[in-house]
Design a protein around this nucleic acid. Sequence first.
RNA 1: GGAGAGAUGGCAGAGUGGUCGAAUGCACCGCACUCGAAAUGCGGCAUGGGGGCAACUUCAUCGGGGGUUCAAAUCCCUCUCUCUCCGCCA
Length: 466
Amino acid sequence: MASQVRHELVLAYTNQRRAVSVTAMFDIKWIRANADAFDAAISRRKGSSASAADLLAIDDRRRDIITRLNEAQEQRNTLSKQIGQAKIQKDEAKATALMAEVAWLKDFISQGEADERIVEAELYAALSVIPNLVFDDVPDGADEAGNAEYFGRNGTAATAALQRTPKPSFAFAPKKHYEVGVAVREMDFEAAAKLSGSRFVALKGQVARLERGLGQFMLDLHTTEHGYLEVQPPLLVRDEALFGTNQLPKFEADLFFAPHGDSRLALIPTAEVPLTNMVRESILSEEELPLRMTALTPCFRSEAGSAGRDTRGMLRQHQFNKVEMVSITTPETSSDEHERMLTCAEAVLQKLGLHYRVMNLCTGDIGFGAKKTYDLEVWLPGQNIYREISSVSVCGDFQARRMDARFRSAGEKQAPRFVHTLNGSGTAVGRCLIAVLENYQQEDGSVLVPDVLQPYMGGLKSIGAN
RNA sequence: GGAGAGAUGGCAGAGUGGUCGAAUGCACCGCACUCGAAAUGCGGCAUGGGGGCAACUUCAUCGGGGGUUCAAAUCCCUCUCUCUCCGCCA
């Protein structure tokens, strides 16, 4: 490794406030004991060239340095204590002799500490960009074409499917959301562009109210029927929080940052960041779990690299509202919680009467930190496609390790274990607005208000009919 | 924005350079006493890393990082956070 690169690596490493030791971040002990399994698992992931052999080579060097350093420190500690004894006994001659004896260890130790720092920085850099390993039932695939429709745990789609709204049919050619009459008047892309550039929108009047009502409806649903605790989190967060939920170090380009003193704060790309990090650097008691939190927040995404995609309408914006659900669980319950969270997200679409399907994301499409992800894709008749409106992921202990979030079992005298984390949108409000506009549009350009939203619209049954 | 005070184990709270990883109290766990409980007594009770099959041993950690020293909870620098007062402000 070039020395300049190494220098910067060490600097970045030592200046960062790390929540967890380098070896705990991604279980290097597990890799050591299961090298083949690691290589097999990581090879399913696109975008990672990590290999157990490379990682363990760094770790072997690290352990070798530590062993030699520890021996020197032990010697120094022993001699230092003897010096202390001599001083207490006023035996200056003996103390001076001992100090001469220990002198050479000083350089040896500081060199060893420097070496340790370098090798830990290397290991840290290598481990921090390894994606989570996925579950066996995640389908293989190169891109979204490899995703598999999911019909429930037993493959029967039993209850959920029965409550799903069938794909609607129209007696006229349904318009895209930004062409629907009321939206044409009340989705002001031009004004927003003057203020902020492309990928922003100003909603007005009844459409603005509808968007607000949607967010309120979702939040109320999760807090009253699904047992989630409402949280209003900070919308600006530190780098450490972003590291915890794995936006950093790899996906910095997707974020907006605000300068702050000599540092910076990021605008949250999703409430997953603040909600999940609520438990960072803490040891929960098992009785507190599962901890379920939800929030309605704006989300900010730079969308670097997606130039030209979805430029029309408000499908892909730099700013949008989203209701997020986060669960903190024990390792034993996280998979059940994943299914549960999926039904919580589905409930939103079912109550709104929106047609959708559930996809089990394949290895080529799943996110960096997830072990398994279900996407809810809502039907957009104006565009004649299914579009992602919610993503529900189980992360295992991947984020917990990055945050140092653990729990202690009641009674049992064992060391604290890492919690498991899950996150899911329930749902993206902006995209849900699109779905309502397209699915409930009438030929005259007005839009019917879904029953469950009418209380949030002052009883209005339709908007834009004037 | 200005001035000052702080941050020690699950909690409270001692400790200002030398057997301090850290007194004491509370909480918690085990045992004894009890028909049972309370009270009492005895013992245990941090995290991470290295070595070892293990018993065990060793290193690091007193908010984070860096430094001085043979030796740092204790001295210096810096960052973060908390509190008090002043100013400003939704």
